[in-house]
Design a protein around this nucleic acid. Sequence first.
RNA 1: GCGGUCAUAGCUCAGUUGGUUAGAGCACUAGAUUGUGAAUCUAGGGGUCGCGGGUUCGAGUCCCGUUGGCCGCCCCA
Length: 441
Amino acid sequence: MATFQSLPGFRDFYPEDLARRSHLFRVWRQNARAFGFEEYDGPVLEPLELYKTKSGDEIETQLFSFTDKGGREVALRPEMTPTVCRLVGERAGSLKRPIKWFSIAEFYRYERAQKGRQRSFYQFNADIFGEAGPEAEIEIIALLVQCLAGFGLTAQDFYVRLSDRDLWFFYLESLGCTDAESRSLLSAVDRFEKMGDDAFKGYAEAHGELAPARKAAVLAFLEIKSLAALRAHLAEGGAGSGKLAARLADWEKVLGGLAAMGLGDFVQVDLGVVRGLAYYTGFVFEAFDRKGDLRALAGGGRYNDLVKKLGGPDLPAVGFAIGDVTTGILLEQRGVMPALISAPDVYVVSGEGEPRRTALGDVHRLRAAGYRVDYPLRAPAFGKQFKAASDSGARLALIYGSDELAKGVVKFRDLCERSEREIPLGGVAEAEKDFFCAGGR
RNA sequence: GCGGUCAUAGCUCAGUUGGUUAGAGCACUAGAUUGUGAAUCUAGGGGUCGCGGGUUCGAGUCCCGUUGGCCGCCCCA
């Protein structure tokens, strides 16, 4: 049996594992629909160039890529964003705005697997296209919160850190930074939390030592953890700059909208988050567990230039993705992963011969009516069958024996109450209906 | 790509300074039990001890390599 193993970073999903995964998908799908998002999907295999165009040539080292038999350079999808940009871009002219789409799909990345990260994983992706205003951020962040809160997680379990790459650029510009310097500084900000002062080494190498005053300004800015602090900081710097003032107004809208939805406790201003991805153009956000011992649960932001860059029309967009691996770990940790046992509604016990034939007729009728019905394929002794009925987790057992048949009845046993009554043959479907509608389920 | 650590049954593990045919609990199957439930007793299936090589009269045990898991670094769309 040890001859073949699954590939590193790829998981087997035994029924109990798949039940957990399906639980995630169910909650995500249900909430996305509640928010008015439509589900889509795309190909698992895409042209390698699609990802190189979006992320640069180096990305290939992180991809499952190969040359197909037709000589095409292809890659298993490592993310959904380029695909959905293509889909939306192709029909942008005929799609009603705003375009609110979601998907649940499997992705592949050729990376070293570790805690919370596999080479194959699933993501819920949600995006809004065609709305450039901060109203789209409110909607997408609210969905992100609900896609975690929907499991029973609270603001004590996780939170969303909200930042803004535009704000950073405008701020650095007001400090006199060139565009190249700003980009380098943002990459330092991204690493600062983890690396401390070493994060600025890359900047020093490229642009010379960072002036102390400028560094102090950057550090003060990334420490900002509230809207009030941001407001005060910008006022202090005499941020009369129209750009900064306009961004601040957008911040007021986003945080005000989320507060109005009752989600204020889930969102934390945190300019220390910038996300390394160069394609983000405005607000960026990441969801983390409050204890901080897991990697990011979800990440997203605005990417107004990407659809165009990938060959589509000029279409503003904002979106996020949640992964199944870290989310699953968090749900287990917080004890909100339900016990997902798959029990039938009814277990049918029968004798051999005529009783069994009668039972099979009812088994099928009940199944066709939508009940989950199980029975032993090869009927063993009655004692065994009762144990099997009990083990199955079914609420009800139906008993077809020669004694019952002789009387024209079926025994209807409530396995929880351990009570039993007789119902007339042919009245089974109706009795089930009465039982389960009365709250027997 | 780099470092640490681990690997015995489906699961959790035991296995003596290297010594006969590798064990236990749980789980699974069957019987006791041809009509009433989580019990008990009995029996059974399931292992090339991750894989390969070396040392040795003899390796689950010692050595080397390799693959895989876990943890961390790089990266993280």
